[in-house]
Nucleic acid binder design. Structure first.
Lengths: 344, 344
DNA sequence: GAGAATTAGGCGAACGTTCGCTTTCCGCGC
DNA sequence: GCGCGGAAAGCGAACGTTCGCCTAATTCTC
């Protein structure tokens, strides 16, 4: 007699034995394939339910050669924006009957050393990358299995990976347009990391709006706020010291916008009377700052959901084309922007 | 000739064929079991690496009867506090060679209808529950497989599930103690949902401190702020209207504390001069409110990590005892609390 | 220098499925 | 009365592993 550490699960064979048929017939019934008489069909289903049969997806995966599982490699799970996207992605996967294996990257590591192997060993059907820091990882594209569908929410060096992102260029454009429409002439920007494409795209859109209005380029009036409140506060101070004529400011994230707000207050500049501020992201608390923040709404949840949708479609069709999808953004007007007060 | 949709993965048999040994021997080498000569051992490893062999965990799971995977059922992935715990849990799992399957619950659903079956089908080795709303789910304990190790970060009806939580009773006690030490006599509370054990525990600790100092119970001076900024704002207004003598307030979450701060400002009460406020959680922005918030630090990350540690140990030892672990909390003093100014 | 002990490696079976191919049986048309 | 076609069910094989047992060759021991 065998000794078993854990109570065994009931298998299709157990169900078959109890129903007096071969286990293959049981399998047919459970999957609705093949032709089985209504009588045995009902009997088998009854027994399966009585015994509490739960199919073993591991075994099924083995023969089917697909796991119905997506590997999700996340930068920082506790980042509010990323986790929004992850929620969207997970929900979409679930809706389509897929499971999601998540692993997050250590701040220092590139993720290629643990995350990817772990996913490959588990034979995930596709990989979703939700990790901004991977934009800086040059070797990444190299180490990805080229036969495995991959979708990223961020730029991947080499352009060989499909991406789904918000329309960053438009975000920059809308921010500038909004401020220019309110007759601002000297616009400054607190950016995210310069190396990131989202930063570059937003800058480009911003500049495009400026040149459309023949406003002098603000290239010099940009500082890196490193996406942190404190750093942005300091950046804002530097900008205003460099050019006191600034009447409007575009921060590449709401957190940085909040930093800017604090800096402006500390420098005695009222918002929006003396300086307008446009944020980006539309985080929850943006509605609760004082004044409430005008910002660009980035569709994080939708980006995650859309990326997962694309990934699952790639899996279904076997396509590996590195499609690029842009999702629309929109400006949400609150009270941190107003018409420029500097008269001439 | 067989047509294959996807390029096949290299298996242990492929490696064996190329090395001129049986696939079982290859398996031995790859797992470091059995005795194999140094020569063939080296050859096999070389071939495996040349061919880019990646073990198939599905197949391994099938024979080993364990998947090295934990199922994590999350309430709301985008909740900052929960996701901190999840990061801690995921990291610990990874450290110990386990993967994590995540699924989140729909706000309406009880999770038993999708999440659990999905995890069972995938034969996870254990389940981690990170879903506050499950405290209200009475049927949950019933539907859990009693042979499967489960750890929850929140109370589960029936007490048959192991839990790892912060010391909520102590949190309430520390908050009250801090305020009483500053000579406050009329203390009010904005709570989370009353049905939750964390709420009850905090209330209990709070009351304990009060009775130690023979201060009249504040039971009547508590309102449910539903963990929301707006609801807390309204609750605070109600509390102060009911008893204008209130000089101190304990909010069961920092978000609610921020709501309280806003309400106090709008009612012309300076903080901390006219009213002290203690929050709970210690979220990032608690350091940036005005004034910066005195709060109880809840060890979210550690709770997740510790819960996973316990779960993995239960798996290892086969123990199913519903252990209860409490993690210490501490008060962080900032500037929203001061000595009561009402003189007598 | 013969038997025992050790080492290297092979072999069959099992894990829980799915899939395609047989087999058996039955009713039907001509 | 003969073959035909279809329904119902069985059977073997495969997916990629691990494990225990077996065998053959080598080395050790006295």
């Amino acid at each position: 007699m065998r000794v078993r550490r854990h109570a065994r699960h009931v298998s299709v064979k157990d169900v078959a034995a109890r129903s007096g048929v071969s286990f293959q017939t049981t399998s047919k019934v459970l999957n609705g394939k093949g032709s089985v008489s209504e009588a045995t069909r009902a009997r088998i289903l009854q027994v399966a339910s009585d015994l509490g049969y739960v199919p073993n997806l591991q075994a099924r995966s083995l023969v089917m050669q697909r796991t119905q599982t997506i590997g999700l490699i996340a930068g920082d799970l506790s980042d509010r924006n990323l986790s929004r996207a992850i929620v969207g992605a997970e929900r979409e996967a679930r809706r389509q009957g897929y499971g999601v294996m998540i692993t997050s990257l250590e701040p220092e590591g590139s993720g290629t050393e643990y995350a990817l192997p772990a996913m490959m060993e588990r034979r995930v059907d596709g990989i979703l990358l939700v990790a901004p820091q991977m934009e800086e990882d040059v070797g990444l594209a190299h180490v990805l299995d080229p036969t495995l569908p991959v979708v990223s929410l961020h730029q991947v060096a080499g352009d060989a990976v499909a991406t789904v992102t918000a329309d960053d260029e438009m975000a920059g454009y809308l921010a500038a347009k909004h401020l220019l429409d309110r007759r601002h002439q000297v616009l400054a920007t607190v950016t995210g990391p310069r190396a990131r494409r989202s930063t570059q795209d937003r800058m480009r859109g911003f500049e495009r709006a400026l040149s459309e209005k023949n406003v002098h380029s603000a290239a010099g009036l940009a500082e890196d706020g490193r996406l942190e409140l404190r750093a942005s506060e300091a950046a804002t101070v530097r900008l205003l010291e460099r050019n006191p004529g600034i009447t409007a400011l575009f921060a590449h994230s709401d957190v940085m916008a909040i930093g800017a707000l604090r800096a402006l207050v500390s420098m005695g500049r009222a918002v929006p009377r003396n300086c307008s501020v446009v944020g980006c992201d539309d985080i929850d608390s943006a509605a609760y700052t004082s004044p409430p923040l005008t910002t660009i709404h980035m569709p994080f949840y939708e980006t995650g959901a859309e990326a997962m949708r694309l990934l699952l479609e790639m899996i279904r069709t076997g396509s590996l084309a590195p499609k690029k999808v842009l999702l629309p953004v929109r400006l949400i007007e609150r009270s941190s922007t107003a018409i420029a007060s500097s008269t001439f």
